[in-house]
């Protein structure tokens, strides 16, 4: 078994109102100096060793992310 992390983020050109709302709340909470927040999704997959990188790419591109609005990265994590 291996742990695979897939991070999905809104594309830079896509407005991220949730991230903006978080950024807007920080000064009100007394935290200054945070210029921008972008909010995305973080997936942790426990996968069999038989699952190859091509399959992981299909999972990320075809399901976990929507390529129209999101970018994604895939990495295997040492456990």
């Amino acid at each position: 078994m291996a742990r695979v992390v897939v991070d999905v983020m809104p594309k830079p050109e896509i407005l991220d109102p949730q991230g903006q709302a978080v950024a807007g709340a920080l000064p009100r909470l007394g935290f200054d100096g945070v210029a921008e927040v972008r909010q995305g999704k973080h997936f942790e997959l426990e996968v069999d060793d038989s699952v190859d990188d091509d399959t992981l790419a299909k999972i990320a591109e075809g399901f976990l992310a929507n390529p129209v609005i999101e970018d994604w990265t895939i990495r295997r994590v040492e456990q």
Partner: peptide
């Protein structure tokens, strides 16, 4: 239909949340 690829584009969170 957008997710299925029958229509182009995608729908995202409303601008003002």
């Amino acid at each position: 239909l957008c997710e299925a690829g029958l229509l182009p584009g995608a729908l995202v969170r409303n601008e003002k949340l």
